[in-house]
């Protein structure tokens, strides 16, 4: 049971990441591979505040959001100029640079040592050290973010985003300042990723830079692509699938000396098959 609760918590965290990244990749059509950077910003903000100051978990979430927005604004200003492949390659760069900062700004982040002893949230008299309570908390955050994302996509703002995706030139003709829209959605998405990071840090009680490298961004992107582009439920489905798949494969009974590598093979083959037969993802509404 504990195992299933644990998987459900991980799922909630990655569903938040998937939903938020879908706003950028699916709805606006910008292939961002830097989501783990903002995920890390949230995690590090919470970790540092909870271990070094008296700030509580919920205040640290707010501060994490603020830091993520500030940083995503700086990065987004640069990124808003790019399109397509170049946008993706640019985000590669930012993820690597922010990862290098997590790893090398030792006075603040403790570098390769990581930060242990992060406390679990407390609210009124509810103890979130209990995993079930933590799951409820994570699901509440997921619900909140899902509805904010839904509100955004159904709003006129969201329709402009989709128009940018379909034909940016045309919408510029109508007088829309598209870099402003791209920047705004990028920052909103980053803020949501920071929330997931805060949850992650507090749940594991330990973080180190290795959780926020480029490959993690690729994993989150895979959630969105697999589940479904421009479909919020798709991102949730993708998170469910990619969090559960490796765990199910633990039980398949590959010979122990190749089991772990076989999982990678299966993972790779599934990505290829999805691209071949369902490039919009399981329930997506937009093809890359």
């Amino acid at each position: 049971m504990e195992y299933l609760i644990h998987l459900a918590i991980l799922f909630s965290i990655y569903a938040i990441l998937g939903v938020s990244l879908n706003l950028v990749v699916g709805y606006t059509g910008l292939l961002s591979v830097t989501h783990a950077a903002f995920y890390g910003i949230g995690a590090y903000t919470t970790a540092i505040l909870l271990t070094k100051t008296g700030v509580g978990f919920f205040s640290s979430v707010i501060l994490g959001i603020i830091v993520a927005i500030a940083l995503s604004f700086l990065i987004g200003v640069v990124l808003s100029k790019f399109k397509g492949d170049y946008y993706a390659i640019g985000t590669f760069g930012f993820n690597t640079i922010i990862f290098a900062i997590f790893l090398n700004w030792q006075n603040l982040t403790m570098g390769p040592f990581g930060i242990p002893g992060i406390s679990k949230p407390e609210l009124l008299s509810i103890n979130f050290a209990n995993n079930f309570n933590f799951l409820v908390l994570a699901l509440i955050f997921l619900g909140l973010i899902y509805f904010i994302a839904r509100f955004i996509t159904k709003s006129p703002f969201g329709r402009v985003l989709k128009a940018i995706r379909e034909d940016e030139k045309a919408i510029v003709v109508f007088g829309y300042n598209t870099p402003y829209f791209k920047l705004a959605i990028f920052s909103i998405s980053a803020a949501m990723a920071a929330v997931a990071g805060s949850l992650f840090a507090s749940y594991l009680t330990f973080i180190d830079p290795s959780s926020f490298r480029l490959m993690e961004s690729a994993f989150i992107l895979a959630i969105v692509i697999l589940g479904g582009l421009a479909n919020l439920r798709g991102a949730i489905l993708g998170a469910l699938f990619l969090i559960l798949l490796p765990e199910i494969l633990r039980f398949v009974g590959f010979p122990p000396d190749i089991a772990a590598q076989m999982r990678q093979v299966v993972y790779g083959v599934i990505l290829i098959l999805v691209m071949l037969y369902r490039p919009q993802g399981l329930i997506g509404e937009y093809k890359l």
Partner: peptide, 22 residues
């Protein structure tokens, strides 16, 4: 019983929970 964690914190947590729960 061996479980892979790829030295990735989240998978470490999953592996431990699997070993404990299952």
């Amino acid at each position: 019983i061996f479980e892979d964690d790829q030295l990735d914190s989240k998978i470490t947590a999953s592996a431990v929970n699997k070993l404990l729960g299952v």
